[in-house]
Nucleic acid binder design. Structure first.
Length: 103
DNA sequence: GCTCTGACGATTT
DNA sequence: GAAATCGCCAGAG
């Protein structure tokens, strides 16, 4: 087993997010093994070397705000909407689209 | 090994 | 509800 770094684990978690659902940075950090490292998650995604294989647009903030994106928030919202996610005033209804993996 | 940065979180004003 | 502040952690210089 190779020693995966925090970033590698983040990539693995984000890659599991199903289409039509979203996850928060805090939750991704938690699954990555570093609860509270939401900033580190955003940092990893920002430099992500596998952007094409990473649905990072499905990762949003804790309060439902889309957060940031390499192409810009507007494009991120457009991608989410294209997956069937409804966004109200730049906000996502986490009560409906938040993906909760089996514990 | 130290310092700065950053697509964040939660609390307070 | 929005803005400001502090705290959090990992990566890069």
């Amino acid at each position: 087993m190779a020693i995966l770094t925090f970033s590698e684990r983040v990539y693995d978690v984000v890659r599991r997010i199903p289409c039509g659902s979203v996850m928060t940075y805090a939750q991704v950090a938690r699954l990555a093994g570093a609860p509270g490292a939401a900033r580190a998650v955003g940092n990893a995604l920002n430099k992500n070397p596998e952007l094409v294989a990473m649905p990072c647009h499905r990762v949003v903030r804790s309060q439902g705000q889309v957060g940031g994106y390499v192409h810009g928030t507007a494009d991120k919202i457009r991608l989410l909407t294209a997956e069937g996610i409804t966004i109200n005033h730049d906000r996502i209804d986490l009560s409906v689209y938040l993906y909760e993996p089996a514990l």
